[in-house]
């Protein structure tokens, strides 16, 4: 009951946030001094064609009217027509997004597994070798630029060792039927193991590069949180009850220590989505990040705003899920 009301409240907040994002994105794209019509038709197009194009795109209307049309469109999940592909932007997004989400999920799984395990063990074995390893791992993770790490790994694993593919999502002529759009999931559903292993070998490097920084910060927070919890009174109670060290750590400490980490996981998801822009470019990953970058280069505004809004939407959705799991994990949050 209480939890239901809490979720409703959060969804309401999310609507407000999305409206804010839509407004900001609109004004940014309409304020920058660049002319999309010129970009489409070229600098030498005759004036009548330019005017016709402006009218067709609604750019001749006053900016307030344009804004109202734009918001109306969003409410109906209509982001307009891509200037470049001439298809509805939403169709493009649906086409490109699964690759991004698949990469983000793979990075997230990697980051959470590695981060939580490293964090917990470096707290339990404080100042032992695992703790030192974790410290070095984390410092590297937060200090190495993504594009540098990506290129370095490509150089090593693709160019020199030839162990992993050099980019893309799958090899030529190997792809499973598109069911969900998540290539690995689709190949499992179709039972196409060739495609699965091929997809896996393609996703390893980009997922590692994209997830590394998150893994590093999760490991740090997890360690600090675990050390803090192990000092609490209720841990002393658990020990005084005669519980084994394992039960004290995994049943009593871990669940409490995970609470702050869940927030970081949520925030990490946001940085994974924005980091996808770079990672997708380095690894020629056919996702939404690369789609937005390409759209930006040709001033394809509907595609840019649509793509950005969509990512913002997914980000708020992830935060909503985090807040809900926060409330599920921590009974004190359910007020």
């Amino acid at each position: 009951m209480k939890l239901g009301a809490y979720i409703l409240k959060r969804i309401f907040l999310m609507v407000i946030v999305m409206f804010g994002v839509a407004t900001i994105v609109f004004f940014i794209t309409h304020v920058i001094p660049a002319d999309p019509v010129g970009a489409i038709l070229g600098g030498n197009a005759p004036i009548e064609r330019v005017d016709a194009m402006r009218r067709q795109l609604g750019l001749d209307k006053p900016i307030t009217l344009q804004f109202i049309d734009y918001i109306k469109g969003i409410v109906h999940a209509d982001f307009g027509i891509s200037l470049k592909s001439s298809r509805p932007v939403l169709k493009d997004i649906i086409n490109y997004f699964p690759a991004t989400i698949e990469l983000a999920i793979a990075s997230m799984i990697f980051a959470v597994l590695v981060g939580v395990v490293l964090g917990v063990f470096s707290a339990i074995y404080r100042n032992k070798s695992i703790d030192h390893f974790s410290r070095v791992f984390s410092i590297l993770g937060v200090s190495m630029p993504v594009f540098w790490l990506g290129l370095l790994l490509l150089l090593l694993f693709y160019y020199h060792l030839d162990l992993l593919p050099g980019g893309g999502r799958n090899s030529l002529f190997i792809f499973p039927p598109r069911i969900t759009g998540l290539l690995l999931l689709d190949s499992i559903i179709a039972g196409d193991w060739t495609a699965f292993w091929d997809g896996l070998s393609h996703i390893i490097l980009p997922a590692f590069v994209l997830g590394y920084a998150s893994a590093a910060s999760i490991a740090r927070i997890m360690r600090a949180s675990m050390l803090d919890i192990l000092k609490q009174d209720f841990i002393r109670t658990a020990k005084s009850k005669g519980l084994s060290k394992r039960v004290v750590i995994y049943r009593h400490a871990l669940k409490n220590a995970l609470i702050p980490v869940v927030t970081i996981i949520g925030l990490s998801f946001g940085s994974l989505l924005s980091g996808a822009v770079l990672t997708e470019t380095i690894f020629s990953w056919p996702g939404l990040g690369r789609y937005i970058v390409n759209a930006l280069l040709v001033l394809d505004y509907p595609a840019v705003t649509g793509g950005t809004l969509f990512i913002a939407f997914i980000y708020s959705l992830a935060n909503l899920v985090v807040d809900i799991s926060y409330a599920v994990l921590d009974p004190r949050m359910r007020v």
Binding site: Q232, D233, F234, R236, T237, S240, G242, L243, P331, R332
Partner: peptide, 19 residues
Amino acid sequence: RGKEISMIFQEPNAALNPV
């Protein structure tokens, strides 16, 4: 512990696991 010798503490709310 907990079987032959038990213990209770000063801050009872903090002595219980919050989750």
